[in-house]
Amino acid sequence: MRLRLFEAIAPMECLYRAAGELAKHELSDRVRPDRVVVLQTNVRPTRGAFFVDLFEAGADDPVFTVRVETGLVEAYAQIMDREGEHSVGEGLLRLTALLLPRGERVDWLEEQRGYLADLPTRRACWGWIFAQLLAMPRYAYTVRTGRERESA
């Protein structure tokens, strides 16, 4: 097994998009919103940070250059990357939960959301969702027939 030290946390385009969004947010905190209209960004990654050049319409030189820490960009990119993913996965889990009795559905879905939130990667989330889809008929039968066995 090879240790990958420089593997990206998220795809580079997600990191660039996240850096641009964070820089625009940082700029809106510093400057009045009516002063600058940012139409284009240029992201330059370095070892410890991303430098984002913000341009106005038709300008050759950047209006502002914002430094955003790499850790913050990676965390924000992971959140952005997983937002749409969970809605599809949770939809599948909600559909699967229809096999359960009405009173059991809400608790089961809440438990599944907790498991998904704890998983580190998108691949792990989809693996968990797939496993739950396969296990649901047996679990639903067990719950509906009341044959749940308590462990000793």
Rank of each mutant, 00 (worst) to 15 (best):
residue 31 V to I: 14
residue 12 M to K: 09
residue 125 C to S: 09
residue 47 R to H: 11
residue 20 G to I: 05
residue 131 A to P: 00
residue 129 I to P: 08
residue 56 E to K: 11
residue 64 F to N: 12
residue 147 R to F: 08
residue 77 A to V: 09
residue 88 V to F: 07
residue 149 R to A: 14
residue 24 K to T: 11
residue 33 P to S: 11
residue 46 T to R: 09
residue 59 A to S: 10
residue 77 A to E: 07
residue 61 D to T: 14
residue 19 A to F: 03
residue 132 Q to G: 06
residue 147 R to M: 10
residue 43 V to E: 13
residue 121 T to P: 01
residue 93 L to Q: 07
residue 118 D to T: 07
residue 25 H to N: 11
residue 111 E to T: 12
residue 122 R to W: 01
residue 36 V to K: 02
residue 129 I to F: 06
residue 128 W to H: 15
residue 75 A to K: 07
residue 49 A to E: 12
residue 119 L to G: 09
residue 15 L to D: 03
residue 29 D to K: 14
residue 95 L to A: 15
residue 35 R to G: 01
residue 118 D to W: 01
residue 48 G to P: 00
residue 44 R to P: 00
residue 17 R to D: 12
residue 74 E to D: 14
residue 45 P to T: 05
residue 120 P to V: 05
residue 96 T to V: 10
residue 76 Y to K: 11
residue 62 P to K: 05
residue 48 G to L: 09
residue 80 M to V: 06
residue 97 A to S: 14
residue 21 E to Y: 09
residue 104 E to C: 04
residue 88 V to C: 04
residue 78 Q to G: 12
residue 129 I to V: 15
residue 102 R to S: 15
residue 58 G to M: 08
residue 106 V to G: 06
residue 113 R to L: 08
residue 149 R to K: 13
residue 114 G to R: 01
residue 106 V to N: 08
residue 37 V to M: 10
residue 95 L to N: 13
residue 76 Y to E: 15
residue 13 E to M: 06
residue 66 V to K: 01
residue 72 L to I: 13
residue 125 C to R: 15
residue 138 R to T: 05
residue 53 D to I: 01
residue 24 K to H: 10
residue 124 A to M: 03
residue 152 A to T: 02
